[in-house]
Every structure is written in structure tokens, then in C-alpha cells.
Write a protein that binds this DNA or RNA. Structure first.
Lengths: 202, 202
DNA sequence: GACAATACGGACCACGGGTCCGCTTTGCAA
DNA sequence: TTGCAAAGCGGACCCGTGGTCCGTATTGTC
């Protein structure tokens, strides 16, 4: 029950590792050629320290990810429109997905590393669960949508890190174009609900 | 240039490996705990044989995958509606995606193994490229759709193996429910194109 | 039946994640 | 200031996995 704060050197080393890992992931070609030994070396620290601080590779990735995600999380939870909670559902859904897309564009290697983190699927990660349940909740406020749970999964799937990487990397689609494509797609999905009745009539 | 046919024992062993691997993937808990050594042992064959026949793990997975996919490929390329080429675009798109979904439901572990095949993203696989370009082509015949290339990616993303595995496995959503959810989603996306003008008016 | 060519298979290697444990640092207390 | 346990350090080490190598066995052709 007593939460002991960590010793000074432990805290310093933890920071060093985060910083070093961050840099490595930014500059690497592919996330899997950043090994734990590399990170330890770059941080000027032993592997033992690394693993004690973060448990395992996934833990390190998660820590980095959460740190980067924090601002967006704030903006979503307590920020102003269009991300914040006061936004009408029809506007918030595209804003949320755009935020996710931009985040993955800005942190390509990191997001990639986390999602393809070997074992257990990305869908077990609790940050996915957070995005999904938020999106589902917002989608529920859009009338006429079939299944907001599935729709949320499907929309989030369009922002998967490896897809984003492929589009931005291999297909060289520029950022703004990607954003507008996603926005159009989302708009379409949202619009379909409202016009479901019309479509059935034809 | 001269295509020598393989020796008899080579062919037999190849078959043995495919059969054994198939069985292992069906019965395993998670694809990554089927090792190459396991496959070799189950097939009654040395590791050398295994790697000579398939190059590497990805090669084995690919071979299995293509074999399983063959019937669907036939149905899509030369079969009758709703999968075959004679189908109107509006009907063919949902049929194609339903086929992909069913395939992944029927071959969960295998599809999972192939997509999370360590290195290089699933988007570099040529079978993905085939599905994507087919779907894009069909989508192009649907009037009013924003960007058929991106839409094709987004729709296929909704049938990603790990998502399917999560929905069918962890969330225990029954097959038919999943199919109808996907169908509804696809219908929505398709409908949005036709009513884009209407939506803008409001 | 001989003799290439082809294939076999398991010992072997590289390499990455993760552990262990003798040594060092920290910080509290006397 | 010094003593001393607890906390932390770090790199040698372990282990499992994909992948290679090469002496031996099998094929099939003349």
C-alpha cells in the first residue's frame, strides 16, 4: 500500500531510456531493428536496468506511446471542440479519427512498433479499448447507425499503423491528402445512417 | 529456363509438410507457438527439407494460404454472381468482402499467422495487392464514391485477421452476426456515395 | 550397375528477448 | 561524518527460434 518513490538514479535512468528510445525509433528504418540492447547502449545503461524499469519490450513501447499520447488524451477528455466532449457527435467523430491519423503520422515507427509488438494482438491493448469505447459512445449518438461497436472497430481499422505507414511511406501519399481521404470516408459512413431509409426505398 | 520437375521424394515431402502444418495451425492456440521445428517434426522431415522447400517461414505460410484461397480466387475470377465478374458493382463489393471475412473466419490462425508474419507489413504481400486492386476497380464503378483506392483499403481493413480474431474469439460474436455487421457497414459506405449530394444540401 | 544430380536431416550458428547475481550507489539515522 | 541496509546497477549468461551447412542417402538415367 505504501507507494515508495523511486530512487534518484532510477528516475534519471528511466528518463534517459525514454529519451534514447524515442530518438532511436524516430531515426530507424524499421521498428524491429531497434533492439533492447541498442536502447540500453544508447541510454548508457545496462540491459538489466532497462528491463527492471519497463518489464519487457512491450512495456517500454507502451510507456513511450502513453507519453506521446498524453496531449491528445487531454484534448479529447477536457479540451475544447472539435475534440472535446462538448462537440456534437457528427463533428466529433471525424475530429477524433483525424487526431488518431495525425498521431500515427507523427509517430509512425513508434505506433508501428507497438501494434506489431509480436505476441497478443493490438486489440488487447487498453489504449485501443479506450479509443474504441469512446468512439462507440459518440457513434451511438448518431441516429440510424447500424452497430456502433462494429462501426467503431471498422473506422479505427482504417487508421491502423501499418496501413498508415504503407500509404504515407510506400505509396507516398501526402499528409493532407490522407487526412481528407479519411475525412471523406468517415463522412460517408456517418451520412449513410441518416439516409438508410431512403436507400431502402429504391 | 528449363523447368525441371522436382524429384518424387521432394514432392511427397512437400505435401507432407503442407498437411502437417495445416493441422498444426488448426489446432494451435496461437500461431506463434507453431515453430518451424514443430512443423518439420510433425511432417516427419528434417528442418533442412522444410526450408529448402519453402525458403522461410513466410514462404510456408504463403503456400498454405494460397492453397486455401484457390477456390475463392476461382469463384471471383470466373465464377457466377455474386462473386464473379458478371455481378453489378453494388452487389459485388459486399459479396467480395463477405468472402474475405468468411475466409478469415474459416482460417483464423493461418490468416493471423500470415498477417503478423514478423517483418514487412501485410500490405507488401501480393495477395493483398490483388484483393485491393480488384476491390478498387469494382468500387470505381460505383458513382459518387470519393477515392476508391482509399475506400478499398479502409474496407479491407475492416476484415483484418486480428480484428476478426478479436471479434470472433475474445468478444465471442457469432459468425452470422459478424457477417451482417460487415454487410451493413459496407452497404452504408456504398450508399453514402449515391447520397453525397443530398447530405451536402442539409 | 554405375554415377551424377538431387534431396535429406539434424548438428550447428546468430541473434534477440529476458534473467541473475555480485557489486555500487543512495539515503536514512546515529 | 560515518555506518549500513535497501534499492538499484549492468553485463555475462541462458534459452528458444529462425535459418544454414554439409556429409550421407536417394533417385533416375545411361
Amino acid at each position: 500500500m505504501t507507494e515508495r518513490r523511486p530512487r534518484k538514479d532510477a528516475a534519471r535512468n528511466r528518463e534517459a531510456v525514454l529519451t534514447a528510445a524515442d530518438a532511436l525509433f524516430v531515426h530507424c528504418e524499421s521498428p524491429e531493428d531497434v533492439t533492447m540492447a541498442d536502447v540500453a547502449a544508447a541510454a548508457g545503461v545496462g540491459k538489466g536496468t532497462l528491463f527492471r524499469a519497463f518489464g519487457d519490450r512491450a512495456g517500454l513501447l507502451r510507456a513511450l506511446y502513453e507519453a506521446r499520447l498524453e496531449p491528445i488524451r487531454q484534448a479529447v477528455e477536457i479540451g475544447p471542440p472539435p475534440l472535446g466532449p462538448a462537440t456534437p457527435a457528427r463533428d466529433r467523430v471525424p475530429a477524433l479519427l483525424d487526431a488518431v491519423l495525425c498521431f500515427k503520422l507523427d509517430n509512425r515507427r513508434l505506433a508501428l512498433a507497438l501494434e506489431e509488438s509480436g505476441s497478443s494482438s493490438p486489440y488487447r491493448a487498453e489504449h485501443y479499448e479506450r479509443w474504441h469505447s469512446l468512439l462507440r459512445t459518440v457513434l451511438e449518438q448518431v441516429p440510424g447507425l447500424a452497430d456502433s461497436g462494429f462501426t467503431a472497430h471498422a473506422l479505427l481499422a482504417a487508421t491502423r499503423a501499418d496501413l498508415v505507414e504503407h500509404l504515407a511511406g510506400a505509396e507516398r501519399i501526402p499528409r493532407e491528402r490522407l487526412r481528407s481521404q479519411l475525412a471523406d470516408f468517415v463522412t460517408g459512413v456517418l451520412a449513410s445512417g441518416a439516409t438508410q431509409g431512403l436507400a431502402a426505398e429504391e
